[in-house]
Computed example of a mutant assay.
Amino acid sequence: MLYGRHSVEAALANPRRRLIKLWATQNALQRLEGKLPSGLAVELVAPHVLEQLAGSGSVHQGLVLEAQPLDSVLLEDVPAEGVVLVLDQVSDPHNFGAILRVAAAFGVHALITTERHGPGMTATLAKAASGGLEHVAVIRETNLARAIEAIKEKGFTVIGLDSEADNDLVTAPLQPPLALVLGAEGKGLRRLTRERCDLLARISLPGRIVSLNVSTAAAIALYIAQTARP
């Protein structure tokens, strides 16, 4: 179940999504004029019905969409180009969703994460991603260290983000294909993950706080990587 204007509109426009049914208020449905796929079941409802469908307190913005989960993408299908993100046990759905949103904004085409200790593809995550879930392939791997080795064999340079690293991300080799690895808040990167990276780098900050929320760190790292391109 997807809810919220950006999440629902992105899913409606995604040809890879198999849609089942849309519930909407009259006003929200008017905003979707011309965006509804033919044949989609639509039901006009009052806002309290949407809250029952999406969950109490959800910011549904007048829209709830039932859809099948997106088909899985395999690691071997990831092209050796551009930038990918690797998340090491980032489990909070709000952080994960925010990272997906940032990733989509910067043109990241894949996000690799752990099968265990990772969030499910829930409506909460999709809402936080604000449509990003439709644009960035999410690949779940049981062994993240092995997955990092696999993308290195494809030609990716793998850089792990660590606030205590000796290297500054600004001076790191950031030419694509590039993989940026971020760890969970508090724990950071696990030992095996760190050992598989080609380089560990920090985001240098002028203030006294040197660690950032993981989604904020992802946004800054992607901006630095983008500005490093010729």
Rank of each mutant, 00 (worst) to 15 (best):
K35G: 10
E164I: 09
D92I: 10
A80D: 03
R146Y: 07
R191Y: 14
F156L: 02
S72Y: 11
I159V: 09
R116W: 15
E141D: 10
D92M: 11
L50R: 11
E115G: 12
E115P: 06
E134H: 00
P37D: 00
A98T: 07
G34H: 07
A98N: 05
R194N: 02
A104I: 01
E115K: 14
L2T: 00
Q52T: 12
E185H: 10
N213F: 07
R190F: 13
E141M: 13
K187D: 14
R101C: 08
T122I: 02
S163A: 14
A103D: 03
P79G: 11
L19D: 01
H135N: 04
V59Y: 08
S204N: 14
Y223E: 09
P119E: 01
Q68M: 10
I148W: 10
A129F: 07
D168W: 15
F106K: 02
E149L: 04
L36R: 08
V102G: 08
H48W: 14
K21D: 06
L75E: 09
I99Y: 12
G160E: 00
L111D: 00
N27P: 03
I220N: 06
V138G: 00
S38R: 02
V45S: 07
R5K: 07
L161G: 03
V83R: 09
P177I: 00
A172M: 05
K152C: 04
A10V: 04
L212R: 06
R140P: 11
A67E: 06
Q226W: 07
Y223K: 07
N213I: 04
T122M: 01
A221G: 08
A225V: 05
S7R: 05
A104M: 02
V210W: 09
S215E: 02
M121K: 08
E43K: 14
P119R: 06
D168C: 12
R5N: 05
S215Q: 03
K154C: 10
V158R: 04
P93R: 09
L212I: 07
I139K: 06
G155W: 02
H94Y: 06
V8W: 11
T25G: 09
A228H: 09
G97W: 08
Q89G: 04
E134M: 00
A150W: 03
